[in-house]
Amino acid sequence: MAYNILIVDDSEVTRNVMARTLKMCGVDIGEMYFAENGKQGLEQLDKSWPDLVFCDINMPVMDGLEFVNELHKSEEWRDLPVVIVSTEGSQTRMEELRQSGIKGYIRKPFKAEQVAEIIEQLLGKDQHV
């Protein structure tokens, strides 16, 4: 069984870089869904079944933290793991993110092995190809 991934980022380049990295990270990836902001991410959840979300923080319309707060209000999606993908390296910000329920954090620029590691950490490695 492969993992379905939702990528939420307002940068098309970042969405594509993450998609390419997922394809080459050694984890069995099934469907990939894309959204340009948190609002689109919530809309995408109405029509898809992701196992994990990679999400930017700073986005127009609805940012990453608002998106996570909305997920936590949902019976269906409150346990969906969200990994923040950002350029920020502040430990203070990371602690804030952890307290708000974020399950993981990847700092840009990232490598395929970092992406694989966080997927294994959150979803397990027993389903790998």
Partner: peptide, 17 residues
């Protein structure tokens, strides 16, 4: 965007937001 984020951490450390 990536240069900026990495630069600020390198310059100011990893405490400031």
């Amino acid at each position: 965007n990536m240069v900026c984020g990495n630069f600020l951490t390198s310059w100011m450390g990893d405490a400031p937001v």
